[in-house]
Amino acid sequence: MATPINRQTEMTLVQAVTDALRTKLTDDETTLVLGEDVGKNGGVFRATDGLQEEFGEDRIIDTPLSEAGIVGTSIGLAVNGFKPIVEIQFLGFIYPAYEQIMTHVSRIRMRTMGRYGVPMVIRAPYGAGIRAPEIHSDSTEALFTSMPGLKVVCPATPYDAKGLLIAAIEDPDPVLFLESMRSYRAFKEPVPSESYTIKIGKAKYVTEGQDVTLIAWGAMVQVAQKAATEAATRGISCEVIDLRTLYPLDRSTIAASVQKTGRAVIIHEAQATGGLGNDLIALINDTSFLYLRAPIARVTGFDVPVPLFALEDHYIPTPTRVLEAIQRTVDF
């Protein structure tokens, strides 16, 4: 957890990412940043802004436009003494590297009985809501949460982004680090200048409440919070949980909350079918079935590809849709 806070700076989430990278690049000479346009250009979202000037072209590496190549060569670097921090420009562009992640990144520790590990972080901006071009807005986290050997992290706030990214870089196992594009510059909050970590696998109570548990991550945490504020005006007290880590899930926090409220609404941008919400429902079923007073509700994207942006506001869960689900759950 956080070390004593001496100095802190107001930062956006993307600035906190840069700050975490700078912290680890300074701390640990084996860290490398690799990706498309991460060098001079500082990344398409400026997440690596200034890092090449500070740490040199040798450590902040502009790679060819080649996702499988970036991840594949990073495996070789990772098993041979380095900690590659890979930037995939958008989660929607990660699929050429999916084979490398699925068949090697996630399996090498298992296949070599621990002789080789892959201490690699793959950062990927994800999600809709910023009027991005086609394919740039995917939320396909469930393709990765169902991949044994990999951890999946998704911060919702600048403070968490820095602490979780440092934890991810220090983790001996590979971590997919999802950064909500919509949250990148949505707000600022104080972030300590020091290095600190947030434990991977721990969810966070954003708001405590009594009647309904809202479970969300990334950009959907704010949507849940807005719905919770609105629900409060109707006299419904919501407990908002920011999952922060999507694999491994924080079973005890989710169970404790649902056992208290007896109701749950899960909010995610991804499609309903095959979405992580289904694993959360299973988790609640396994741990808390007899505490439930209503069926668990999901507010998710639809079973369609993320649309071109003219329709994206219909696709992304809104506070209104969440509020409707809360009301249905309470009225059951």
Partner: peptide, 27 residues
């Protein structure tokens, strides 16, 4: 000995070898 487990998917080990060699060059 630095022997990687056999690659069963086709060609995926080529970038790995390139990366491991890259690491040696860096060192």
């Amino acid at each position: 000995l630095h022997i990687f487990p056999p690659a069963v998917p086709i060609a995926t080990q080529i970038p790995h070898a390139v990366g491991a060699a890259w690491a040696e060059k860096r060192k």
